[in-house]
């Protein structure tokens, strides 16, 4: 922190501030009340954000009771009749239940299992490169796609994959093959989703690994070099163990979100022909809303929320025990 700031700002503060009010606090109030009174301005500052939280985060939780009701828009959330677990049973016994769960888990674990090794290799390569300009160029460029929206990603993907004008399909045709409708073919949709996610976010996810790598003491590498360990052995025996805690942490966090397959991505990329392999819980909930099946959709959303909460709490416990780290 720069020291230059305080003199002038404090002078301003002194001029503007009211005389201290400690004397006004009645003596008989306890220590807690005095502390609270001392922080009264902070509580005032907290009013808008806490109001926001109550309205936009807690009222929806209250509204989620329609999962157990037969919601009629005219009767409202409170006026609709209770039906118990009917909607949950409908969902668990429906023919699309297995498909939705399988698709969701395939996407979320696929992105994790295939994406993590790529990110680790990239982070180690960046860390090992001795060409400073080149490695910061690689960092700058690979972080960039993280900030692009999935609509822009759709534009980029069409430029590569469109059957009529995509670069990859031009290549296939030049090699004498038939163009492949990657985005509308059930055989290809999952590969497109997982690889485009890896393309977009691998660079960004190296940040955590790089931080861990930079935290490893250079002495370890030097000692290993003196002992005659090759570059590769130093990576295997020093770098990799150094990032294991980050790997554990990321894996557990992602497992806690195993039912989050990336709604924005699927929503923008999928279409009717690939529903069988591409429809996930969140997209199904969205479509159930369009069909005015508010109660069933909320039941599915609530199932996902409770499942996710339990998983993340378990994951946090596991992280505490095994890696001695806590997610939150």
């Amino acid at each position: 922190m720069g020291q230059y700031v305080h003199r002038s700002t404090l002078a301003t503060a002194r001029v503007l501030s009211a005389p201290t009010r400690r004397a006004l606090v009645p003596e008989r109030l306890g220590r807690l009340a005095r502390e609270m009174w001392k922080h009264r301005w902070l509580y005032l500052l907290l009013v808008p954000p806490l109001t926001y939280y109550v309205i936009f985060r807690y009222i929806p939780i209250y509204n989620a009771q329609i999962a157990f009701k037969d919601f009629r828009p005219l009767l409202g959330v409170e006026g609709s009749a209770w039906v118990g677990f009917e909607h949950f049973q409908t969902f668990f016994h429906s023919y699309y239940f297995t498909d939705l769960i399988v698709n969701t888990v395939v996407f979320s674990t696929g992105k994790l299992v295939l994406g993590m090794p790529v990110a680790i290799v990239l982070a180690i390569a960046i860390h090992e490169s001795r060409f400073m300009f080149f490695r910061s160029l690689v960092q700058t460029v690979t972080y960039l796609p993280h900030f692009l929206s999935w609509v822009i990603m759709l534009g980029l993907l069409l430029g590569l994959l469109s059957p009529s004008s995509g670069m990859i399909n031009e290549g296939i045709q030049a090699a004498g093959g038939q163009p492949i409708p990657f985005l509308t073919s059930p055989d290809w949709f999952r590969q497109v989703v997982i690889s485009s996610d890896i393309w977009k976010d691998t660079g960004w996810s190296t940040i955590l690994y790089l931080a861990a790598l930079l935290g490893i003491s250079p002495d370890l590498y030097e000692a290993a070099a003196v002992d005659g360990a090759s570059r590769w052995r130093r990576i295997w025996h020093i770098s990799l163990p150094g990032i294991v805690p980050v790997m554990v942490l990321i894996t557990l966090l992602r497992l806690g979100n195993i039912l989050d397959a990336g709604f924005n991505q699927i929503f923008i990329l999928y279409s009717v022909p690939v529903y069988s392999v591409g429809d996930i819980i969140d997209t199904w909930v969205y479509r159930s809303m369009l069909d005015f099946q508010f109660s069933v959709g909320t039941a599915v959303g609530l199932f996902k929320g409770v499942f996710g909460l339990v998983l993340i709490l378990v994951a946090n416990q596991v992280a505490k025990r095994t890696a001695n780290q806590s997610l939150f």
Partner: peptide, 17 residues
């Protein structure tokens, strides 16, 4: 605040609000 971060009830209850 953390609770709202860990527990989501999905799209529809927010949409209703």
């Amino acid at each position: 605040i953390l609770f709202t971060f860990l527990f989501h009830v999905g799209l529809i209850p927010t949409y209703l609000l």
